[in-house]
Amino acid sequence: MKAGATGKGKKAKTDAKEQAWNLRLYVAGQTQKSITAFANLKKICEEHLAGEYSIEVIDLVKNPQLAKGDQIIALPTLVRKLPEPIKKIIGDLANTERVLVGLDIRSARGGASQKLEAGTDFAPAPNPMR
């Protein structure tokens, strides 16, 4: 996946009616790890949570003060803001199985992931290297 340069696209939402899954991905610039993590996340969400999720990518290089709020140390970190409770997954999300466990997708959703709603639009963080 490539980092899109969508201006102020810090927040990129799916246009679904209710964002049951509110995810936040903290990264630090366009590193290989960030790119990999986002691609992995996107893939997993599309497969399991299509239409029900929103992904917010926060680039800490741009907004370092945001790291405190979610207690971010390791990068990349994926934070499940909703549904509660908050869950954190660190790493490049390469292990899909663990991500699903970590996000509780398996248990929470059961087999309900067949809803395939289109319109998942994603704009990653602006290029910090600029």
Binding site: K87, I90, D92
Partner: peptide, 14 residues
């Protein structure tokens, strides 16, 4: 949960 490679850049940034 830890999945894959990461670093502690977040700490550095903070």
């Amino acid at each position: 949960e830890e999945t894959g490679d990461y670093d502690l850049e977040g700490l550095f940034i903070r």
